[in-house]
Design a protein around this nucleic acid. Structure first.
Lengths: 217, 217
DNA sequence: GCACCCGCTTGACAGCGTTAAGTGAACCTC
DNA sequence: GAGGTTCACTTAACGCTGTCAAGCGGGTGC
C-alpha cells in the first residue's frame, strides 16, 4: 500500500466516522422531535441520547435550526416521492384527487414532521448546516400541483372563471391543509366532535372538485 | 362619611388600582404579542414596558399561559361577535358564505391573534388566571357554524350523502382555515406566487358550496 | 519523535419562566 | 395617634435553555 493510499484510506475512515456521528445526531434528534415535539426537544437531550456533550452537536450543525432544517428537507423529499408516484395518472382531475389523498396520508402518518413543514413559519431563505442558502424544498411538490391544475385548465375541464393556476393550486392545497391542521391543533378540544380527517378530506376533495368542474353538457 | 363608607371607598380604590395595573399588563402584553409574536415576547419585556419588575405580573396572572389565555378569550369573543352579526341572514347557504368571508376578514385583520387561536395546539381544558377551568371559547362560533350547516341539511339543500353536520362543518371551516394559515406560514416563500387570500377564500367558498349543493332540477 | 489536526469536552455566558422571601406604604383597630 | 395587618410590588435567586471560547487528547503527517 502506497503512502498516498494509506493517507486517503485513513482520511476516508475519519470522514466516515464523522458522518456516522452526524447521522447519529440526526437519528436521535428525529426520534426526540417526533416524541416530544421540536420545541420541547433540547440540544442537551439529543446529545445525551447518543452519549455526547451538547457542544459536540455544534461541530456538525451550526445551530438547532440547521438540525431542524436538515430533517425537514428529508421530509420534503419523502413527500415529493409520494407525489412522484402519482405522476403517471393521465386524468389531471383524478391525479389531483389522488395527490390530495396521498398528501393527507403523509400528514397523518408523519404528524410531527407535517407540523414543522407546513404549520410553522420557516425563515426564508432557508440556510443549511454549512450556511448555504437552500432552495425551498417544498417547491417540487408545489410545482407538481401547479402543473396538474394547469393541465386541467388547458384541457378545459374547469369552469371558465377558474383560470388562474396559483389560485386553484392554493385553493386545493389550502383546503386539504386546513382540515388536517385543524385536526392537529384542535382534536383534543372536548367541545368539538371531530370526524376522521381522512374522511373529511375525501369529502372536501369531492366537493371542491365537483364545484370547480365545467358543467358537462 | 361613615367609617364603613370610607372603608368600602378605599377598598374600591385599591381594587380599581389593581384592576388598572392588571389591564396595563394585558395592554402591554397584547401589543408585544402582536408586534413580536407570542413566543418571542418575554415576561421581562412586558414588565419593562409598564415599568414593573417581571414578578409583579405573577400577582395578577398565574403564569405566561394564563396571560395568553386571557387575551385569547377576548379574541374569541370578538370573533363570536363578528359571527353574531351575520345571524340574521335567512338562507343557510348565503349565511355560510358570509360567515366564511367574515371569518377571513377577522383572521387577516388580526393575524397575531388568529395564529394563536387556531394555529397553536392549546392545552385542553383551558385554565384561566384564577386556575378555573374555562369552557372552550371557540365553542360559540363553532356551534353557530354547526347550526348553520344543520339548517341546510334539514332544508334539503345539500346533496343527500352530505348529511353529517360535523363533517360538513369541519370541511367548510378547514377549507377556509387552510387557505388563511398557509398564507400566514408561507407567504414569505419566494418560490410560491401567492394570490390574495381573500380572493382564494372566496373562490374556495364558491367551489365547495357549489359542489355540496343538491343539483337543482 | 515531534508537531499538527480536529472531534470532542470543560466551563461558562446571557437569557428565559418562575418562585421564596422581603419591603414599605396604605389600611384597620384600639 | 400608636401598633399591627394587609398586600402590591421588589430583590435575589433557581433551574432551564441555546450557544461559545478555550482546552484536551488521540490519530495523522513529516
Amino acid at each position: 500500500m502506497t503512502t498516498s493510499a494509506i493517507r486517503t484510506a485513513s482520511l476516508a475512515r475519519r470522514e466516515r466516522q464523522k458522518a456516522e456521528t452526524r447521522q447519529a445526531i440526526l437519528d436521535a434528534a428525529r426520534e426526540l422531535f417526533v416524541v416530544d415535539g421540536v420545541e420541547a426537544t433540547t440540544m442537551r437531550a439529543i446529545a445525551a441520547k447518543i452519549g455526547y456533550t451538547p457542544t459536540a452537536i455544534y461541530h456538525h450543525f451550526r445551530d438547532k435550526d440547521a438540525l431542524i432544517v436538515e430533517l425537514c428537507m428529508a421530509d420534503f423529499s419523502s413527500l415529493g416521492q409520494a407525489m412522484y408516484k402519482i405522476g403517471r395518472i393521465e386524468d389531471p382531475i383524478e391525479r389531483l384527487r389522488r395527490m390530495g389523498l396521498a398528501y393527507t396520508d403523509f400528514a397523518l402518518d408523519n404528524p410531527s414532521q407535517y407540523r414543522f413543514m407546513f404549520m410553522t413559519a420557516l425563515k426564508h431563505p432557508l440556510v443549511d448546516s454549512a450556511g448555504n442558502v437552500v432552495t425551498a424544498p417544498d417547491a417540487d411538490a408545489y410545482e407538481f400541483l401547479l402543473q396538474t391544475v394547469t393541465e386541467g385548465i388547458e384541457k378545459g375541464v374547469y369552469r371558465p372563471e377558474l383560470n388562474d393556476p396559483p389560485e386553484l393550486a392554493q385553493m386545493f392545497w389550502g383546503g386539504i391543509h386546513g382540515v388536517i391542521s385543524l385536526w392537529f391543533t384542535h382534536c383534543g378540544d372536548p367541545h368539538i366532535v371531530f370526524r376522521d380527517p381522512r374522511e373529511t378530506v375525501r369529502t372536501m376533495c369531492d366537493a371542491v372538485i365537483r364545484g370547480s368542474l365545467r358543467n358537462v353538457g
